[in-house]
Design a protein around this nucleic acid. Structure first.
Lengths: 204, 204
DNA sequence: CGTTAGTTTGAGGCAGATCAACTTTGGTGG
DNA sequence: CCACCAAAGTTGATCTGCCTCAAACTAACG
C-alpha cells in the first residue's frame, strides 16, 4: 500500500539519505515521529539473544515506517535496516498529529494497512507449523519477488523471512530450478509462474 | 484493552447468547459489521488443511471482535469460537460507521489495539524459531493465565497457542510442577511467580 | 456412576538445523 | 580493465528436538 505524494504534505521536511546496511532505528528505542520512504527498500528485523534473526516486514518507496510502534504507543520491537540505498523523511510527532487533525482519513488508511499486516503476520505464524520449510520458502520468494521484482534477495534474507536457514533455501531453490519453476541467473532468479508455484506448495 | 460501556452506545442492539463451542464467524466469510463482547471468552483459530490448528488470539469481556478483517477490508482469515458461554452484540456496518463519525477517537483506539496485536504476533512468530517449545509454552501459560486467571486452559489450547502439541505441553507442565514453578489442581494449575518463570525461559 | 473429553507416559522416527569444507560471484581499487 | 578478495552460495554428513503414534489412565459433568 502506497501513499502517493505524502511527502509534499510536509514541505519543510528535509530528505535524508541512508546508506545500504545502516540502521534507521533500533529495537528498544522510543518513537518520536514516523518515517516516510521516498525511495529504496527497508527491512524490519528482530534479533534474538541466541543469534537468530527474523525478517518481519519489508518497506518500499511510498510506505510509512515506524508507524506500528508509534500508534501502539510502545518502544520499537524490532530494528529497521536499509536493504538498499534509501531516501526518507522524518515527520516529528507534533507535525504528524497536526496532519492527522487536518486529514483524519490518514488514520483510517493506516489502520487499514496495519490490520492487513496483522492478518499476514498471523498467517505466517500459522505457516510455521502447518507448512514445510520448502512451502514457506516458496511463499516467501513469491511474496518478495512480487513486491520487489528488481531486488536480488540473498538466501539469508529469504531464510530469515521464511523461518528457515540459508542452506535449506539453497537446496529448495536448486530443486525449484530442476523442476523448471525458477530460472537462476547469478545470485538472482526469476519465478516462471508464481500462481502455479503457489498451488504446488504442498508437494514440496 | 477494554472498551467500557461500549454497548450502552448501541442501545438498540440485542445481546445474543452464544453457547460454549459454537462458531461466531467462519474463516472465509465476509464481515458485515463488528462484534462487542459483553461476557465470556472467545478464541480466534486458524485451521489448516492438514489438520493443524493455530490459536491466534483470545478475546474477553469488553473486547471487540472481527474488527481486524473489518478494517483490513478482507474476508475473515480465521474462525472465532466461543471458549465459554458468551454474550455479545453485533453492530452492523452502517451503525458502526455512524458511530465513528460521531466519535472519531474510536478509530485511534482500535488502531492502538491492532498495532499492539501486530507487535505481539510478530514477536510470537520470531519465538517459533528462537525459542524452544518449552519456552513458548511457558510464555503462553503466563500470558493466558495473566489475562484469564479463572479459565482452565486445556493442554490442547495451550499447545495451539504456543505452536506445539498437547503431549509436549503435558511434559513441560510436569517438569514445571517438579521444579515448583506451578501447582497443579485437577486439570487446572496455578503459576507461582510468573515474572520469575519468564526469566528462566532459556533454561527450559 | 457411567461416559467421554482430557491427560499421561513411553518408544520411535524424521524434517530440517547444524557443522564443515569448498566454490562462485560480483564489487572495487590499482 | 582486470585481478583480487570478501561476501554469498553450494554440497554433504551428522545430529537432535519434538512430533507422531499408541495405549492406558483420570477428571468432571450429567
Amino acid at each position: 500500500m502506497i501513499l502517493d505524494n505524502f511527502d509534499t504534505l510536509f514541505p519543510t521536511a528535509r530528505p535524508k539519505k541512508i546508506r545500504k546496511g545502516s540502521v534507521i532505528y533500533n529495537e528498544g528505542s522510543k518513537p518520536s515521529g514516523i518515517y516516510y520512504i521516498q525511495s529504496g527498500i527497508i527491512g524490519l528485523h528482530h534479533l534474538s539473544e541466541n543469534g537468530k534473526e527474523t525478517f518481519l516486514r519489508v518497506f518500499g518507496a511510498g510506505n510509512l515506517l515506524g508507524h506500528r510502534s508509534y500508534f501502539a504507543d510502545e518502544l520499537y520491537h524490532a530494528t529497521s535496516i536499509a536493504i538498499n540505498d534509501t531516501q526518507l523523511i522524518f515527520i516529528p510527532k507534533e507535525e504528524f498529529e497536526q496532519h492527522i487533525k487536518e486529514r483524519p482519513e490518514t488514520l483510517r488508511f493506516i489502520l487499514n494497512q496495519i490490520a492487513s499486516d496483522l492478518g499476514r503476520a498471523e498467517l505466517r505464524m500459522s505457516g510455521r507449523h502447518d507448512k514445510s520449510a520448502a512451502g514457506r520458502i516458496i511463499e516467501s520468494i513469491v511474496f518478495l519477488k512480487l513486491h520487489y521484482p528488481k531486488q536480488t534477495w540473498t538466501r539469508k534474507q529469504i531464510a530469515d523471512y521464511s523461518g528457515s536457514t540459508f542452506e535449506t533455501v539453497t537446496r529448495v531453490l536448486n530443486k525449484l530450478e530442476k523442476n523448471g519453476d525458477i530460472i537462476k541467473n547469478g545470485r538472482d532468479f526469476k519465478i516462471i509462474t508464481p500462481d502455479r508455484l503457489l498451488e504446488k506448495i504442498r508437494e514440496y
